[in-house]
Amino acid sequence: MQIFVKTLTGKTITLEVEPSDTIENVKAKIQDKEGIPPDQQRSIFAGKQLEDGRTLSDYNIQKESTLHLVLR
């Protein structure tokens, strides 16, 4: 499925993911596309910070959902 990741600069990245993917996985995909190390990424969805060990389905993130990426 496709999800979108919006950065603070307003750029939107499209990722191909599975509901079973962990947040860690997703951060690795963002690193592949953007070169941002996962330890600098904070992902926010529906106002909640997403934890690395959880999966997209844990957070009820579905296709075409938009995550927000904040850098630390």
Rank of each mutant, 00 (worst) to 15 (best):
M1V: 04
Q2A: 07
I3S: 00
V5A: 03
V5S: 00
V5T: 00
K6F: 08
K6M: 10
K6R: 12
T7P: 02
L8Y: 13
L8Q: 12
T9N: 12
G10Y: 04
G10R: 04
T12L: 13
I13A: 02
I13V: 06
T14I: 13
L15E: 00
E16R: 10
V17I: 04
E18R: 14
E18L: 14
E18Y: 14
E18G: 07
P19Y: 07
P19A: 09
S20H: 11
D21A: 06
T22L: 08
I23W: 11
I23M: 05
I23E: 03
N25Y: 12
V26H: 00
V26T: 02
K27W: 11
K27R: 09
A28E: 09
K29F: 05
I30R: 02
I30T: 02
I30E: 01
I30H: 02
Q31T: 10
D32M: 13
D32P: 03
K33P: 06
K33S: 11
E34G: 08
E34F: 14
E34C: 15
E34D: 10
P37V: 07
P38G: 09
P38L: 15
D39V: 08
D39H: 12
Q40T: 10
Q40H: 13
Q40P: 06
Q40E: 11
Q41K: 07
Q41Y: 15
Q41A: 10
R42P: 11
R42S: 13
R42G: 13
R42K: 12
S43P: 15
S43T: 15
I44G: 04
A46W: 14
G47W: 07
K48F: 12
Q49A: 12
Q49C: 14
L50D: 03
L50Q: 01
L50F: 04
L50G: 01
E51Y: 07
D52F: 03
D52A: 07
D52Y: 05
D52M: 05
G53A: 10
G53Q: 11
T55G: 00
L56M: 04
S57C: 03
D58E: 11
D58R: 00
D58G: 03
D58V: 03
Y59A: 03
N60D: 09
N60E: 07
N60R: 06
N60F: 07
N60Y: 06
I61D: 00
I61H: 02
Q62D: 07
Q62P: 07
Q62G: 12
K63R: 11
S65K: 03
S65C: 04
S65Q: 11
S65A: 11
S65V: 05
T66W: 07
T66P: 00
T66Q: 05
L67D: 00
L67V: 08
L69K: 01
V70E: 08
V70T: 08
V70H: 08
L71T: 09
L71R: 09
